[in-house]
Simulated scan of single mutants.
Amino acid sequence: MTDSIRLSKRMSELGICSRREADEWIERGWVRVDGQIISQLGTKIHPDQKITIEKKAQSEQAKKVTILINKPMGFVSGQAEDGHKPAVTLVNEKTRWTADKTEEHFHPRQLKSLVPAGRLDIDSVGLLVLTQDGRVAKRLIGEETEVEKEYLVRVRHTLPGKLPDEKLKQLRHGLKLDGKPLLPAKVNWQNDDQLRIVLQEGKKRQIRRMCEAVGLKVVGLKRVRIGKVKLGDLPPGQWRYLHPDEKF
Rank of each mutant, 00 (worst) to 15 (best):
Q170E: 12
L128Q: 07
K169D: 10
V136A: 09
L130D: 02
D121Y: 11
P160A: 05
R154D: 15
L130I: 02
T145L: 08
R154C: 07
R172W: 02
Y151D: 00
L152T: 03
K167G: 06
G161Y: 06
K162G: 09
Q132F: 05
I141W: 01
V115Q: 13
T158Q: 11
L168Q: 11
D165H: 10
I141P: 10
T158A: 03
E144N: 15
G126P: 00
T145F: 06
D121T: 12
L127K: 00
T145R: 13
L168C: 06
R172V: 02
K169A: 14
P160N: 07
R154K: 12
G134P: 05
V147N: 12
L140V: 08
G126A: 00
R154E: 15
K162H: 12
V125E: 15
E166A: 08
Q132M: 05
Q170Y: 09
E148V: 14
K169I: 03
D123T: 11
R135V: 08
R119Y: 11
L159T: 03
L163K: 01
L163F: 00
A137L: 11
Q132S: 07
D133N: 08
H157N: 07
L159Q: 10
I122D: 11
L168F: 03
E146Y: 10
E146P: 07
L127R: 02
K138T: 10
E166D: 14
D165R: 08
L159A: 05
L127S: 00
A137H: 09
E143K: 12
V136N: 05
V136Q: 10
T158W: 01
R119L: 09
R135F: 02
H157G: 01
P160S: 07
I122L: 15
E148N: 15
K138N: 14
V125R: 13
L130Y: 04
E146A: 14
V136M: 15
Q170L: 15
S124I: 03
V136P: 00
E143W: 01
E148F: 14
A137C: 11
E166K: 09
T158C: 07
L171R: 11
R154H: 12
Q170W: 13
H157Q: 09
V115A: 08
L128A: 06
E146M: 14
Q170T: 02
R156L: 12
K169L: 11
T145V: 04
K162Y: 09
G134M: 06
D121G: 14
E144F: 13
P160L: 06
K138M: 09
G118S: 05
L152I: 11
I122P: 02
V129I: 13
V147K: 13
K169R: 14
L130H: 05
D123Q: 12
G134C: 04
V153D: 06
E146W: 09
V115N: 13
A117L: 05
I141N: 05
K138Y: 09
